[in-house]
Amino acid sequence: MVTRVDNDFPADIIGLQVAEHGPDARVVTVTGEIDTLTAPKLATFLNEQLSAAQVVVVDLDGVEFLGSAGLSALFEANEQANRERRALRMVCHSRIANRALEATELRDQFTFADSVPEALKHST
């Protein structure tokens, strides 16, 4: 099941979709620009998914901008996952998002998988 989430911005600014994979895993697909305008939406959304599922995969392949507010939202979600013993796994082949994670030396904070199926493989 894929749910398109209504948000206040057109899809070309930020898009958030979630797909359920069994009772305990969800895949969040993020597209567009994650900045000060859109990061609060992402933060709330990830918080909801982590509250509902044991494994949350965040697919960042369609991200076209990742600013410090977006990095902060991802970092907070990761902290929540660690705190609540949930698994948050990232998939990211977006050059811009990868550059943001590398330049800010935040990449090591997160768990990455090569693909969504790979990220779901270890979910129960």
Binding site: D35, T36, F65, L66, G67, S68, R95, R99, A100, A103
Partner: peptide, 20 residues
């Protein structure tokens, strides 16, 4: 270079967000 362009875009975004 591409990395420097991306870094500057992010840095300016960050700088402006702090001031706003």
């Amino acid at each position: 270079d591409l990395d420097s362009i991306d870094d500057l875009r992010m840095a300016v975004d960050d700088l402006c967000a702090m001031l706003v």
